[in-house]
Structures are given as C-alpha cells and as structure tokens.
C-alpha cells in the first residue's frame, strides 16, 4: 500500500516539524512582499497607460471621469474635513492660547501652527478622511464591478478597464488630498482665529496669518506636496488593487474593503512618518 501524499504546504505534519512554524511565520511576510510587488505592478500599469491621455478623444473621456472623482473625493469631503478642522482649530490652538503666556504665544503661534497643524495634523487627518470616505467607496465600487463582470464587458468592447477605472483614481486621489490639506490648514487657522478673537478682541488677523506664513518655507511646502502626491497615489492604487481581487461573492467585497483600509492606513502612516523623519530630523 502506498502512503498517501499530502500536497498541502501547511499540513498538520509540517506543523509538527520545525518547517511548520517557519512557514507559518514566513507566510505573512511573503504575502506582504507579494502585495508590494502587485502594487508596484499596478503603478507601472497606470504609468504606461498614461500616454493614452495624449489622444484628444481619450483625454475627454478621462477628464469627465477625473472630475467626477475629484468631485466625489475632494469636494464632497470638504464638509467633514472642514468640521474636523474647526474642532481642531477651536480646541487645540485656542487651548495653547489659554495656557501659554501671552508673549510666548504671540512669538511662537506661527511656529506651533506650522509644526502641529501644517506638518503633521493636516496631512494625517486629511489622509484618514480620504481613506474612510473615498477609498472605501472606490474599493467597493471596483469590487461590485468585478462581481457584475463589467471588466469582462469592457475588455469585450476593446476598452481597457485600466483607462476607465485606474487612471482617474490614480490622478484624482493625490490632487484631492493636496486640496484637502490646503483646505484643512485654512479652516484650522480661521477657526482658531475666531476663538482667539473671542478671548482677545485685539488679536490681529493679519499678524497671526503672517506669523504662520513666515514659518512655512519652500521645503515645508515640498514635503507636504510629496505627502499628498505619494500618499494619495498609494491610497488610490491600494483601493483598486483590493477591489480588483473580488471574484465571485459579495463577502469578498467586505473583505476587500477591510484589507484595503488596513493597508492604506499602514502605508499612509509610514509615508507620513518617514517623510517627516527625513525632512525634519536634522
């Protein structure tokens, strides 16, 4: 009688040997490596499809989808982005105003604003809002398109799904995130000014604004732009990647949203922290 061969790499027999735990430990790492390679592949697909935009007619189709994405992602998010910014501005900056001696506050307001809001909170909170509001929607949309075999339909029509679904997100997410950064900083400043003004009606709007602008160097702007462009691009690509993994069942859509959101948060935090460390640790 021949011994049955067990082809399962994670078989119980393996787990009893040294090989089992090693494989169990390696599998998640291999999975992450595989996902990173696929994301790089997706970015290169988007970049190689970009020359299609040189065609006038294709560009017209792209622009309608691009502006739809900007509207859904950047414009519709202004309400929640603004609400969070008002709270941050009113509570955080006005608290500083309360606790710090007047002279220190006057001298350091611009610096505090730049370090706390412009450098860190603005990008971080805008990114989280983009992930929670728009990226989940894109993952779900792509997942349902896959379930309904609409990618197959597009291929049958000789139309690349990359052009219709990947490119608009690939370009609209970074731009939306940049707009959200700017809007967030602006609303935080306005709301903090209002609270400061209530406490001290002599507080001068222009003086406070100039104090902030004086602190924002070209370097700061460049780092924020890189955070928006790189972060937005990665958030968009990750949404498409996980949405496109859906095959046959509705439960795969919720799995895709969950996996996509986790990965996006992780990647976005890493990008922010790395860029902050690289730029500001000297």
């Amino acid at each position: 009688m021949t011994e049955p061969h067990d082809p399962d790499p994670n078989s119980s027999q393996d787990q009893l040997t040294l090989l089992g735990p090693i494989k169990l430990a390696l599998n998640p790492i291999l999975g992450i490596g595989h996902t990173i390679l696929e994301l790089i592949g997706l970015i290169s697909v988007a970049l190689s499809a970009s020359p299609l935009l040189l065609n006038k007619k294709r560009r017209r189709i792209f622009l309608s989808l691009f502006f739809r994405q900007i509207y859904n992602t950047g414009v519709k998010a202004l309400y929640i982005n603004g609400a969070v910014a008002v709270l941050i501005g009113a509570v955080l900056i006005s608290r500083l105003f309360e606790y710090l001696p007047q002279q220190v506050f006057n001298e350091q307001f611009g610096y505090f604003f730049m370090v706390i809001v412009f450098r860190e909170l603005g990008p971080l909170i805008s990114g989280i809002i983009l992930i929670a509001r728009s990226a989940t929607a894109v993952t779900a949309e792509i997942g349902y398109l896959r379930l309904r075999r609409e990618f197959q339909v597009l291929n049958g029509l000789g139309i690349s799904p990359v052009f219709l679904f990947l490119l608009p997100v690939f370009f609209a997410f970074p731009l939306s995130l940049l707009l959200m950064f700017i809007y967030f900083d602006l609303v935080v400043f306005l709301s903090s000014y209002v609270v400061i003004w209530i406490s001290d009606p002599s507080a001068n709007f222009l003086v406070l604004l100039l104090a902030i602008l004086d602190q924002i160097s070209l370097n700061e702007i460049a780092i924020n732009a890189v955070k928006a462009l790189l972060g937005g691009m990665m958030i968009g690509v990750i949404s498409i990647h996980f949405g496109a993994k859906v095959e046959d069942s509705y439960s795969e859509v919720s799995d895709a949203i969950s996996n996509s959101t986790t990965t996006q948060l992780m990647v976005f935090f890493v990008i922010n922290i790395l860029l902050s460390l690289l730029a500001y640790t000297q």
């Binding site: 989808l65 309904r148 609409e150 339909v153």
Partner: peptide, 21 residues
C-alpha cells in the same frame, strides 16, 4: 488587436453586460 476586434465584432449579453458607471 482589441481595437480592431471591437470594431468588427459585437456581443450581446443575456444578462447585465452594461457599464453601471
């Protein structure tokens, strides 16, 4: 190629087949 095939062949699906976008 996809473009040439799409201009010479039309396909009608029994169900769905439209782009929901």
């Amino acid at each position: 190629g996809a473009h040439e095939r799409a201009t010479r062949v039309g396909f009608v699906y029994e169900e769905q087949g439209l782009i929901s976008l």
